[in-house]
Amino acid sequence: MPAKGWIEVDDLHCKGCALCISACPQDVIALDMERLTPKGYHPAHLIAEGCTGCALCAIICPDAAITVYREVPVHTKKAPASA
């Protein structure tokens, strides 16, 4: 099962520089042309399923505006084999 992830972009910090868009290997980030941040930029947002939570967008983000989440499968503990 591929890892499922998502990002949250803080509108206060995002300046619409679009570096996250070119860094995204899944091409699932775009600028939201319908919204403006308090500074007057179009913020980045997720446009499709497919984010793996790789955090490349957050690493390149110059304004630390992106928080990355990932779903990790929790394996329930195997019962110890009876000797």
Binding site: D10, D63, I66, V74
Partner: peptide, 20 residues
């Protein structure tokens, strides 16, 4: 398996919440 949400990346704590 049951999925659990993990924060992979967040704003460092040594940063203030001021926009640069």
């Amino acid at each position: 398996t049951t999925p659990e949400t993990k924060v992979v990346f967040k704003r460092p704590e040594s940063f203030t919440d001021v926009t640069t």
